[in-house]
């Protein structure tokens, strides 16, 4: 069974919200990923010596790159972790991007990670963050197209730990 939130935490149940909204609109129910089998678990990481990569699905691209389209775009972008946040842009259809446009760190925490590298909390950052537009309805295409591409990039950058930031 999925992990339940603590009793004192009143979380918004977005699965229920989506189900009820779709029903009201006359759509078929969206099938969220459900995995009752436990995930593989890697051993602990020593942060102070770890090379850390950022993978984020908020639709961030850098000026000069082609923006994401919104019809199951499974492509990704390499966004240098040295980027000025003023050069970061947002392209996504499924969430309110107002704050992400004003401060891309809310979905692509590049400045927080740079600060944690500077103070020695983490060993180093991978040179590029990997970004995509996470509103992909086909789980098959995520598995067959996006995931192998992300894995290949991470292997090339020889990372020890990946921080994943969905929206």
């Amino acid at each position: 069974m999925p992990i339940e939130p603590p009793g004192d935490l009143d979380v918004v149940d977005y699965i229920a919200q989506t189900r009820d909204s779709y029903a009201q609109l006359g759509y078929d129910a969206y099938r969220w990923a459900r995995n009752d089998d436990p995930p593989a678990m890697q051993p602990p990481v020593d942060l102070a010596s770890a090379r850390v990569a950022l993978v984020a699905s908020g639709g961030i691209y850098r000026v000069g790159q082609v923006a994401f389209h919104h019809a199951d775009d499974t492509s990704h972008r390499r966004v240098p972790m040295s980027s000025d946040v003023a050069d970061l842009r947002v392209s996504h259809f499924a969430y309110d991007t107002t704050d992400a446009k004003a401060d891309p760190n809310v979905v692509f925490p590049v400045e927080a990670l740079r600060a944690l590298e500077a103070d020695g909390t983490i060993g180093s950052l991978a040179p590029d963050g990997l970004t995509f537009m996470g509103g992909i309805y086909s789980q098959r295409r995520v598995r067959e197209e996006l995931i192998p591409a992300i894995e290949a990039e991470l292997r090339e950058m020889e990372v020890d730990l990946v921080l994943l930031v969905p929206v």
């Binding site: 979380v11 149940d13 678990m41 890697q42 995520v142 991470l154 990372v159 990946v162 994943l164």
Partner: peptide, 29 residues
């Protein structure tokens, strides 16, 4: 994104995630 986390972990790459959608994330595990 949880599908990516599970895959990477299964092929030897450690992950950690952020989330603001408890039920969606917990379902994908």
């Amino acid at each position: 994104m949880s599908l990516i986390a599970r895959h990477l972990e299964s092929v030897g790459i450690a992950t950690t995630s952020l989330s603001s959608a408890w039920s969606i994330t917990a379902s994908a595990n």
